[in-house]
Amino acid sequence: MTSVLPVMRGRSWKFGANVDTDQIIPAKYAIYSLDEKKLGEHAMEGVPGNEDGWAQQVSPGDILVAGSNFGCGSSREIAPVAIRGAGIACVIADSFARIFFRNAINMGYPILQSPQAAEAIHSGDELEVDLEAGIIRNFTQGDEYQADRFPPFMTELLIHGGLVPWVRKRLQERTFA
């Protein structure tokens, strides 16, 4: 376990509570299920007010901040894929809907649960996220927030790049067992 989780810096984009997967990536774009770049172009387009696009304003490395139950609704993994495709480095939320949470962890895509951060951060704040320590620093407001700790197995999945390498290893163990 030598790989270390990265420290990320970016500008925040703030969203409300109960943003569902059809707002994150409207179902009509599910035809691009296998094209992360194309999905990224339409990320968050279903949020009222974003009809004319949102991803075009995102700089690679920016951070998405949301309220409670982020990613509720469908199980389609294209939701976190679209957000990653838009260039968002990580998602911070008050809480995550269960399937979105699983999908992100399984993809090895960093997410943090921090009610404190989700409430305090404004759109446009300059943030730094230390994934290893679970610390979110807000340079704009001169503040710092702690994220909830994930169970060790989930942290391990994140460190190793998600569920894919875990399954590959297990398949090999079975073959040679």
Binding site: G73, S74, S75, R76, E77, I99, R102, N103, N106, M107, G162, L163, V164, W166, V167, R170, L171, R174
Partner: peptide
Amino acid sequence: GADSHSCTYGALNNFAAGVGSTDLACVLSL
């Protein structure tokens, strides 16, 4: 089931949960 409404099946006294595509790939493999 790789669909959020997979929870439907629980009416038949089972544990049924929706999962994403990576989860389904894991189940199909292992």
